[in-house]
């Protein structure tokens, strides 16, 4: 009865990877839709505070970001651990804000200029002194629309 004694060669069912590509594509689309491109490397750490009454930023293309916080560890050798202002990807001073805002405003369409919003991404540990200075400078630059970045909590 060789039929029963002989070793049966068991073959595992083939594992089809054909649909893996589809799954990864779905993942890819999910990330493409939900995320936005990171534009600049910010050199300061900004842990924004929490707030409940937050509104969404209306036009991202008309937004200028001003980051205020402590420099990231790799920049601390140069700039120390004091609160600093970061415009685009460089640590600057308050006096640079005027030129920064002006150059951004130049780049916009004439009709969009009054709609330009300045997003203030400020670390929650920051003292109000520097924030007030920045706000005063923005008033002088006629950049009056601002948004304080915050995390949403209920």
């Amino acid at each position: 009865m060789a039929k029963f004694t002989g070793k049966k060669v068991k073959r595992l069912a083939g594992f089809s990877t054909a649909s893996m590509g589809d799954i990864v594509f779905i993942l890819l689309f999910f990330f493409m839709v939900t995320t936005t491109m990171r534009e600049t490397d910010v050199k300061v750490i900004t842990n924004v505070p929490k707030a409940s009454e937050v509104a969404k930023l209306e036009r991202k293309d008309l937004t200028v970001y001003i980051n205020i916080g402590t420099p990231i560890p790799s920049e601390q050798a140069r700039y120390g651990t004091d609160t600093r202002i970061c415009l685009d990807d460089a640590i600057k001073t308050i006096d640079d804000i005027r030129n920064f805002i002006a150059s951004r405003r130049e780049g916009l369409d004439e009709k969009d200029r009054p709609l330009m919003t300045t997003a203030l991404k400020i670390d929650k540990e920051t003292k109000m002194g520097i924030v007030s200075d920045v706000k005063e400078e923005l008033r002088r630059c006629q950049a009056l629309k601002i948004i304080y970045n915050a995390l949403k909590v209920e």
Partner: peptide, 21 residues
Amino acid sequence: FFLMTSSMDESLGINRLLPPI
């Protein structure tokens, strides 16, 4: 590539209008 170059953070915040000088 997309995971590296993009960020999840949505810009949310409190809108304010500064008074003109």
